[in-house]
Amino acid sequence: MDVLIYLIPIALSLGFLGLMAFLWTLKTGQYDDIEGAKWRVLSDDDLPKRGGGA
């Protein structure tokens, strides 16, 4: 059962990582516009403009 000494901290830190990620999404306001987010994926505004492209 000595392996638990490694496994429990690993499990806890993974969970903690998840919590931190959630708090980060919250802090950066990612739940403010749930409707828009799904469409933003499709927008290609962030691509560099190519000559001749629309």
Binding site: A11, G15, L19, F22, L23, L26
Partner: peptide, 21 residues
């Protein structure tokens, strides 16, 4: 509202880990 979300996150994290144990 942010506080409520944060509380939910913390409770969810804690509930899942304690449930594991």
């Amino acid at each position: 509202e942010r506080g409520l979300y944060r509380a939910m996150g913390v409770a969810g994290f804690a509930a899942m880990n304690v449930m594991l144990l």
